[in-house]
């Protein structure tokens, strides 16, 4: 087959970039990791003594705020990702157990809800409810439908894959097919769908905090600081949290984008 080594002109294979979006995702992850480290180390910048946010210089204050924003976003993203993936898996399971109708209804609900302005629920919940974990749950719920839609698309595409038929032809029982073939191939796409929750919850929380209806002031949040600085008309206090928030949002989007692009078939 030596003379066919060259790919035909009419069906060009892309040049050696086996993982599209890899560089973007990697840089996003690097920036987010650096931000998280900087935020974690922020108390050290305040002379090592007790931290008083209002005394600290604006950059240190913004980094301190990042602790609240990032950790809340992480918590809500994990919850939202799990909820969305669980939703998609539930739809898939209903489809195999009871028929395609229940599956369609379950996932159609998610698709419809993904179009609603669910982010408005977050300030509502922030204003009405006290505990942070309830707020995290509501924030997670706003991201879950989008995750569920994407995860279900990946799942149903994979359920029809020919290699599952080939595995059944090899006499594997359904449980074996799921364990040996479905789960290894599903892990990455589901993770990619779950990461989609991260930028969404970060944006939703910042929006709520900007209105003053988000995280409690003791926790600190970029959105709250931006809102406060805007109200006070203090550009020096405004710029650092706004820049850091923009950077974190870009990084989260880049990670989610890169992972989704790595999944896409050419």
């Amino acid at each position: 087959m030596a003379e066919y080594d060259q790919p035909p002109l009419s069906h060009p294979v892309p040049p050696d970039t086996p993982r599209a979006g890899f560089a973007r995702g990697l840089s996003g992850a690097a920036i987010l990791a650096a931000l998280a480290l900087a935020c974690a180390a922020a108390p050290l910048m305040a002379d090592g003594s007790a931290v008083h946010r209002l005394d600290a210089d604006p950059v240190a204050a913004a980094l301190l705020d990042g602790r609240g924003s990032l950790s809340f976003a992480l918590l809500a993203a994990v919850l939202g990702g799990l909820l969305g993936i669980g939703w998609a898996l539930l739809a898939g399971m209903l489809g195999t157990l009871t028929g395609s109708r229940a599956e369609r209804r379950t996932i159609a609900a998610a698709q419809r809800m993904a179009g609603w302005p669910l982010a408005l629920l977050v300030p509502l919940a922030g204003g009405l409810m006290g505990p942070v974990w309830l707020l995290a749950l509501v924030t997670a719920l706003t991201a879950a439908p989008a995750v569920a839609t994407l995860a279900h698309a990946e799942l149903s595409g994979l359920m029809r894959a020919e290699f599952l038929t080939a595995a059944r032809a090899a006499g594997l029982a359904e449980g074996e097919v799921v364990r040996r073939h479905l789960i290894p191939n599903l892990a990455r796409p589901l993770l990619a769908a779950g990461v989609l929750a991260l930028p969404r919850v970060l944006a939703a929380e910042s929006f709520a905090s900007l209105l003053g209806l988000g995280l409690p002031p003791a926790l600190g949040s970029w959105g709250a600081s931006v809102g406060l600085a805007a109200r006070l008309g203090d550009p020096v206090a405004f710029v650092p949290p706004a820049l850091l928030l923009a950077l974190a949002l870009w990084a989260a989007c880049a990670i989610a984008d890169g992972m989704a692009a790595g999944q896409r078939k050419p």
């Binding site: 020919e162 290699f163 038929t165 080939a166 595995a167 032809a169």
Partner: peptide, 21 residues
């Protein structure tokens, strides 16, 4: 399973019939 051993398929898209993982 015994019958599966005796009856084996060839698929129209062989590349897709292998688990990419």
């Amino acid at each position: 399973r015994r019958a599966r051993r005796d009856l084996q398929p060839l698929f129209p898209d062989p590349a897709a019939s292998f688990d990419p993982a």
